[in-house]
Design a protein around this nucleic acid. Structure first.
Lengths: 350, 350
DNA sequence: AGCTCAGATGGCAGCGCTGTCAATCAGCTT
DNA sequence: AAGCTGATTGACAGCGCTGCCATCTGAGCT
């Protein structure tokens, strides 16, 4: 033995297990990898040896020999509220397939983006990558990963690519439904606060609103459509402008909860009674939605489930078979309407 | 050549680079690892070859040969608001040292905890681990990692261990300061909402409050000290109880922003004017703090910086030297008072 | 000139696994 | 009884690097 193993560190090697079980290392390897062609009795013996020795195969060695890495990358641009929830779902699913999640922030706007990607890809030999928006929409990301032969799952991409699996939610339908609820309660002048331009979600959510308005034969007053950037501060401006319009809107739909919270603040400052004179709804069911008064009616994103599904798709990729199952998987998860106090019937006098 | 390299996958090997540069693989290795003893001219030649070939050394191979892993684990129990912010700081610092962050949720209350840990440790051979509370306080975690010889940085541990580096903030001093501000503004009946029992932060924050009250010679009314669990719902209960006390408190200090937001809601429901009749302060400067009205005065946690520092400590560990530098590093980061609208002078009539 | 010595470089084995292929064996067939 | 089959197992090389040690070079010295 050339290099002594550090004392206490790591666990036994496959050879020790093999000796203990009275088989060859290769057979132990077979058991570890759940390969067929091992007699049940042998398998048991090996399993017992593994237990006794508290043996855990070295991932680096497994990876090197088997041309795998057991690593899945989660690439994101900006950490958001939902990130930790998402990754928790993803990690859970990864565990079930013996994979590990590696998180890598990646500046979408950076000129170094491609270089950074190549470095990651080259070093880690990831078995798959989960792309959070806006990374899920950058052609350079898609191209670089495809060139490296790394399967990528795109979360809520704006443009679906033929060969790219994706996971998203039907935001349009959800907002349509929510808007219909407001209409049913008698609201006619409804404001809509758009999110950051260029986001898939921004368009979808707006379209859902437009769908419902159109279906009811109502025109959309351009004064009552404002564009924010999903942030509270912008939402405040948008809401003030809307609430200055006459006749005043009796309801505001915001493209996310932060902006909806801003609408509440603006209304309070402008002495508009909540929710009597103004109903407000948001999107996401972020923590803030239940921390403001009145509590926000909103649409719940199944964030953790999206994470799970993303990881699941990665684990379904068959590198040595045909790659993705055909057709390329595309999962749409349901959204959930959460009705709370921020919605009231339209005031009589409006 | 036995196994053909998958086409397009990965990059060149060290041998190709060596050939291109006209040196031996070993010399390329020296350049990659910034070892001394390579002539500047040779080093340049190798660097150029690396660039030309877009070579990225295989981490698994480097790890296997060099008994490293380039992996740092981030172990947490529950994903919280601050997690993604924290990990972003940690990842940034890891990059600078060529390390990668592996996130692993670990159920603190699980009976399997030790087994899960041993598996992770055995498989990944992590170079270091960052422990978020409450994991940073579990003896079994500390013991298991220590036995495996893996350096661990404890975030905001309740009990500092002699051989365990840690990163935390001086919550006690910050709350003391904040309380003093309220006292300066004439508040005398001040309610305090404690966090979840057993948390280090819960005690520290309360002690800071007690310090300031005592320094001013004020007794603490037990009616005005309620225990929540850091969550909005509990905060609502606590606030209601406090606001039912007579004379009513003129200020409430909550141990985090979620509960402070709850206090605002409770006050609004009980028709207590904000902030005229009741000042409220929180802790954390979570997003919600600027999304409620009035916006919360609070204490900003340098979450991202804590993440950075934690990763930095890991990278300062010298496995082949004496381990941690002595004395074992213990970093205390400053907190920042954020004054906003939720604090007003105490009402005259109280 | 002959010597030493530090700096620079290369050779080689091996890290802990897995892929390939060969060997062995029991159970059948004809 | 020889031959064939499929199931089970093992031998061995090698994945892409790095640790250790040998070798070589030229400067500095006596």
């Amino acid at each position: 033995m050339r290099r002594a193993a550090a004392p206490g560190r790591g666990s036994a090697t496959i050879e020790v297990v093999a000796a203990q079980a009275g088989v060859s290392p290769k057979t132990v390897s077979r058991v570890i990898n759940d390969e067929r062609g091992v007699r049940a009795e042998t398998r048991d013996r090996v399993r017992r040896a593994i237990q006794q020795l508290d043996y855990h195969p070295n991932l680096a060695a497994r990876g090197l020999a088997g041309d795998r890495s057991f690593l899945v990358g989660l690439f994101y641009d900006q950490p958001g509220d939902y990130l930790s929830e998402f990754q928790t779902g993803a990690v859970q699913r990864c565990r079930e397939s013996n994979l590990h999640l590696m998180i890598e922030p990646l500046a979408a706007a950076s000129a170094e983006l491609e270089r950074d990607l190549r470095t990651l890809v080259g070093q880690l030999r990831l078995e798959g990558v989960i792309l959070l928006p806006p990374l899920s929409d950058l052609p350079v990301v898609h191209a670089t990963l495809a060139a490296a032969g790394i399967p990528a799952v795109h979360i809520a991409p704006m443009h679906e690519q033929d060969d790219a699996p994706s996971v998203d939610t039907d935001d349009r339908a959800a907002v349509r439904q929510l808007t219909t609820e407001l209409l049913r309660r008698g609201h006619r002048r409804i404001g809509f606060m758009r999110g950051r331009s260029g986001h898939w979600a921004t368009e979808q959510r707006y379209l859902g609103f437009a769908d419902a308005m159109q279906a009811t034969g109502l025109d959309i007053d351009p004064q009552l459509v404002q564009t924010g950037n999903f942030e509270f501060a912008e939402g405040l401006q948008c809401a003030r402008r809307m609430l200055s319009a006459r006749p005043r809107p009796t309801a505001i739909i915001a493209s996310n909860d932060d902006m909806a919270a801003a609408a509440l603040s603006a209304a309070r400052q402008m002495r508009v009674a909540l929710p009597r004179q103004l109903s407000v709804v948001g999107f996401d069911d972020a923590p803030v939605a239940s921390m403001v008064w009145p509590r926000l009616t909103t649409i719940r994103q199944p964030v953790r489930a999206i994470g799970r599904v993303a990881a699941e798709l990665i684990s379904e990729y068959q590198p040595h078979r045909h790659g993705w199952p055909r057709p390329v998987p595309r999962r749409h998860l349901p959204l959930e309407l959460v009705l709370r106090d921020s919605v009231a019937p339209a005031p009589e006098d409006s």
